[in-house]
Design a protein around this nucleic acid. Structure first.
Lengths: 171, 171
DNA sequence: TGTACATCAGTGAACGCGCGTTCACTGATGTAC
DNA sequence: TGTACATCAGTGAACGCGCGTTCACTGATGTAC
């Protein structure tokens, strides 16, 4: 997944090859190709949620925790670009996929934003601001990772700009 | 491309089929598969640039033009999702691809932002604010188009929030 | 006005490839009596 | 402690498929003399 950066490119035979096993052996553990991909996506979500949770838990100060979570987010997206794309730029339909663990990850962000707004006496809607934060940071890492040739400013500048502009800094 | 939403999924044989022609006939017009894809991407960039230019030209008031261009952007991304993804979420390397026309499109945004900041007496760096605008709006349309099941607020609310937050409204 | 020839868009058969999936099978490990 | 049997992870051959690409070819259109 890291190598291909796209879920469609993950063939059952490639997985078997990687595991040093014959293609038929895969059917001992997964119903079929789609089932394999579905479990892979689930694995990515768990990975991602855990990264976010670690950022969240890194400090009692919500502003510090927010910055750490943001760093963890960018880090996850750029390091495990394949996994990140599977989660947020997935173009394949794997059936039900309620991605409960994905909603958990988003809830972490909502909680962080809630704490920051409360600390600042800011009465904006936390869910909306969290959505703004997520769409923006997603745009940053997705464009950055996808067009590395563009003349990008350094990462911190973009992230600082985001936090400042959205007023997610201690006031 | 509209159907597949991904450049890798566009096979030479599928294009030939769509054109009602044998696969070999494609070689009369393109060197090979990669050459075909390259020209397809160029076509998408031109389409996109023209949409942005139309928004830019729609008014002499930069704030009105900005809103129209933003609408054109979102419209392009959601209507021609396949083309949009090819431009901004392209994971395939087609060789050189300087995408000069892509830079032209970004320059349109920079010009709009420059005009708005000047009108407001705002001394922020137009290129940086334009980049902020683009990353954010990309994040919005990419997540929105990719996860249509999420409980999204209406489009205008998100775009208004963007313009307000980035102070790209008449002051 | 003819004739010879080049150009050009297209055809169909064939190739080798990787794919998902099936089939009948093997051999090791656990379990019941 | 043996023996019989079930379970389970794995194998290799084979299938039909769509793919990019090649080859030799056809038939219409334009052009030079």
């Amino acid at each position: 997944m890291a190598r291909h950066g796209s879920i469609e490119a993950i063939s059952l035979r490639a997985v078997a090859r990687e595991a040093g096993v014959s293609p038929t052996a895969v059917y001992r553990h997964f119903d079929d190709h789609v089932d394999l991909l579905r479990e892979a996506v689930e694995f990515c979500w768990t990975n991602f949620r855990d990264s976010m949770q670690a950022g969240m838990d890194s400090s009692d100060d919500p502003f510090v925790a927010f910055r750490n979570t943001g760093e963890a987010y960018v880090d996850f997206a750029l390091t495990n670009r394949g996994q990140y794309r599977v989660l947020f730029s997935n173009r394949i339909d794997l059936g039900v996929e309620p991605t409960e663990v994905g909603l958990e990850a988003f809830q972490i962000l909502v909680d962080l934003v809630t704490a920051m707004l409360r600390a600042n006496g800011d009465d904006r809607d936390p869910a909306f601001v969290a959505l703004q934060t997520h769409t923006w940071i997603h745009g940053i890492v997705d464009l950055w990772g996808g067009l590395p040739d563009m003349p990008w400013p350094d990462g911190p500048a973009l992230f600082d700009g985001l936090a400042d502009t959205l007023r997610l800094v201690e006031s």
